Simulated assay, not measured.
Amino acid sequence: MYSQEEMIRVSKMYYEMQYTQKEISEKLPYSRATISRILDTAYKQGIVEVKVNYPIDFVQSMEEKIKEKYALKKVFVLPVYVDDELLILNDVGRAAAKYLHEICCDNTILGISWGTTLAHVIPHLIPKKVNDMKIVQLNGGIAKNSISTGAAQILEKFSETFSTGYYMLPVPTIVDSEMIAQVITSDSSIEETINIGKKSNIAIFGIGSVHFNNILYKGGFFKEGAYEELISKRAVGDICSRYFKEDGTLADVELNKRTIGLQLEDLQQKEYSIAVASGKSKAESVIGALNGGYVNVLFIDEVLAAEILNENNTRGKYSESG
C-alpha cells in the first residue's frame, strides 16, 4: 500500500524529528488519517520498533528472596505496569525466550513441554544456529478429543528457531491404564524419545494449575469424576502432565503410572530446569513445584512473585517447616 521510502520518511519525521501528525500532513501531501495509517503499517512491517524499558530495581529484591528461599539458580521477576493477563504472559514469555537464546549452545539437548504458557514463549524465540543440538518433547501431546494441545506446533517452532530436528512423542499424555502406558513406552521410538528427554540438560515447561479450564481436563484425559477425585487428593498443579501436591509430592501415584513422558524426579537432575508462569492464580501451583525441587530457574511476574512470598500462602520448603 505504501512504499518503504514513504514509511521511512514519515517515521523519521514523527519519531526522530518529533513532528506531530498534523505538522507532517502540512509538509507532505498526506492527510492526518493517512499519516496514522503509514505509521501503523511501518510498525507492523518492522520498519519501526517500539521498546518499553522497565526499571527493574524494585523487583530485584523479590528475585533474591525467592532465589534464596527455594535455593534456585536464577529467578526472573517481570514488572507489571498494565493489568492485562495476555500482556503480562507475553512479557514473561519474552524474557524466557531471551534466556534460552543465551544458554543454548553446541550439543545442547533441549526438552520442551507444551501448553498455553509455552505458546506465549514461541513468538519471542530468537533464531540461533548451534551445532549438534537436539530438541525433544517431554510428554505426550495428543489430546483424546478435538481440542488441540498445540504440542506439534510448539515443537516445530523451537526446531525452526535453532535450525535442528526434533524428537516427538506422538501419543496421549495420559492413557487409561498402566498396562497401556507400558506397552506404548516399550515401542522403540517412544522409548528412545523418552530417554533423550531424560538426558536433556535444559528443560522448559509451564506449570499447570488444577481447574476445569486446564487443557488436560479439556483435552479429554480424565473420565467422568476422575478430575474431581484428583482435586480431592489435594493436587495443586502439574508439570509435564504429572500432578503434585503443595508439598511437592505426587498427588496420585496410580495416575502417574498412566502418564507418558519425563518423570518429575528427572527434572531435579537438570542443569537448567526452567519454569514459566504468570498470574496470581498460579501461586499454589508454583509453590508446589518449588517445594518439590522440580525447578531451578523461574520466570514469573511481580504479582505472582508477591503471592509466592506471602507468608500466609506458603511456608517455604516443607522440610524446613515440618
Rank of each mutant, 00 (worst) to 15 (best):
S3Q: 13
S3K: 13
Q4Y: 13
E5G: 06
E5M: 05
E6P: 02
E6G: 08
M7I: 13
R9T: 15
V10S: 00
V10H: 00
K12D: 11
K12N: 06
K12T: 06
M13I: 11
M13E: 02
Y14R: 10
E16H: 04
M17N: 10
Q18C: 07
Q18H: 14
Y19P: 01
T20D: 04
T20H: 06
K22A: 07
K22V: 08
K22M: 07
I24N: 00
E26T: 07
K27C: 07
Y30Q: 03
A33G: 12
T34E: 10
T34M: 09
T34P: 05
I35Q: 05
I35D: 03
I35P: 01
S36K: 15
I38Q: 14
I38T: 15
L39I: 14
Y43R: 15
K44Y: 15
K44S: 14
K44D: 14
G46Q: 14
I47D: 05
I47T: 11
I47G: 08
V48E: 00
V48Y: 02
E49I: 05
E49K: 12
E49N: 07
V50M: 13
K51C: 04
V52P: 03
N53H: 06
Y54F: 15
Y54I: 04
P55Q: 07
I56A: 05
D57G: 11
F58K: 10
V59P: 03
Q60K: 14
S61K: 09
S61N: 13
S61I: 13
S61D: 09
M62V: 01
E63P: 03
E63Q: 04
I66N: 00
I66R: 01
K67E: 01
K67R: 09
E68W: 00
E68Y: 01
K69W: 07
K69E: 09
K69S: 04
K69N: 03
Y70E: 01
Y70K: 08
Y70N: 01
Y70T: 07
A71V: 05
A71Q: 08
L72E: 12
K73C: 03
F76Q: 00
V77R: 05
V77K: 05
V77M: 11
L78K: 14
L78N: 04
P79I: 13
V80G: 09
V80W: 12
V82F: 09
D83M: 06
D84K: 14
D84I: 08
E85T: 10
